[in-house]
Simulated assay, not measured.
Amino acid sequence: MLNRQHFIKENDGIEVSFSNRDKLIIGGFIYTLGLIVWGILSKGWYMTEIGALFFALGIFSGIVTRMSQKEIAENFVKGCGEFIYV
């Protein structure tokens, strides 16, 4: 299946709302990006620190969406797996 077909689905007339949880997660993402830029420019951060921030963002997002520890771990591993090509 092509990536385009995987992500583009027909609209079944379902209206999707933009909840406060969504806003909180996007806010956390923007805050994390700002922290990354600050850390790189003023503290000389590299991959370890940046990775730790994204890891913390993943945990934060899981807590906000009320996932269990197991669900957070499974989704994190699944997301990382999409970046790894062997």
Rank of each mutant, 00 (worst) to 15 (best):
2 L>S: 13
3 N>I: 11
3 N>C: 09
3 N>L: 12
4 R>F: 11
4 R>G: 02
4 R>A: 08
6 H>C: 05
8 I>F: 15
8 I>G: 11
9 K>F: 07
9 K>W: 07
11 N>S: 15
13 G>C: 05
13 G>Q: 06
14 I>G: 04
15 E>G: 09
16 V>T: 12
17 S>L: 07
17 S>H: 13
17 S>E: 08
18 F>C: 04
18 F>P: 00
18 F>G: 04
21 R>I: 08
22 D>I: 01
22 D>K: 09
22 D>W: 00
23 K>A: 14
23 K>P: 09
24 L>F: 07
24 L>P: 02
24 L>D: 13
24 L>A: 14
25 I>Y: 07
25 I>C: 10
25 I>G: 07
26 I>D: 06
26 I>T: 12
27 G>I: 06
27 G>C: 10
29 F>S: 09
31 Y>Q: 12
32 T>H: 06
33 L>W: 11
33 L>E: 02
33 L>Y: 12
33 L>F: 08
33 L>P: 01
34 G>Y: 03
34 G>V: 01
34 G>M: 11
35 L>W: 04
35 L>M: 10
36 I>E: 07
36 I>V: 15
38 W>T: 12
38 W>M: 11
38 W>S: 13
38 W>C: 10
39 G>K: 04
39 G>H: 01
39 G>R: 05
40 I>R: 02
40 I>C: 09
40 I>N: 02
40 I>M: 12
40 I>S: 02
42 S>N: 10
42 S>G: 02
43 K>F: 14
44 G>I: 00
45 W>P: 05
45 W>C: 10
45 W>E: 06
45 W>M: 08
45 W>I: 05
46 Y>N: 09
46 Y>G: 04
47 M>Q: 11
47 M>K: 11
47 M>F: 10
47 M>E: 09
48 T>F: 10
48 T>L: 12
48 T>D: 14
49 E>C: 07
49 E>P: 06
50 I>A: 01
51 G>T: 03
51 G>D: 01
51 G>E: 00
51 G>S: 01
51 G>H: 03
52 A>W: 05
52 A>T: 12
52 A>H: 08
53 L>M: 13
53 L>T: 06
53 L>H: 06
54 F>E: 03
54 F>A: 07
55 F>S: 12
55 F>K: 14
57 L>T: 08
57 L>C: 03
58 G>Y: 02
58 G>N: 05
58 G>V: 00
59 I>A: 14
59 I>S: 05
59 I>D: 10
60 F>D: 04
60 F>N: 08
62 G>K: 00
63 I>Q: 03
64 V>D: 02
64 V>I: 15
66 R>N: 14
67 M>D: 01
68 S>N: 01
70 K>L: 14
70 K>G: 10
70 K>Q: 12
70 K>M: 13
71 E>K: 15
71 E>H: 11
71 E>M: 02
72 I>K: 02
73 A>P: 01
73 A>F: 11
74 E>V: 11
74 E>I: 03
75 N>Q: 08
75 N>E: 05
76 F>D: 00
76 F>Q: 01
76 F>H: 06
76 F>A: 05
77 V>P: 03
78 K>Y: 09
78 K>E: 01
79 G>L: 08
79 G>Q: 04
79 G>R: 06
80 C>N: 03
80 C>G: 05
81 G>H: 04
82 E>N: 09
82 E>H: 03
82 E>D: 07
82 E>I: 08
83 F>D: 04
83 F>R: 05
83 F>M: 15
84 I>A: 09
84 I>C: 02
84 I>L: 08
85 Y>A: 03
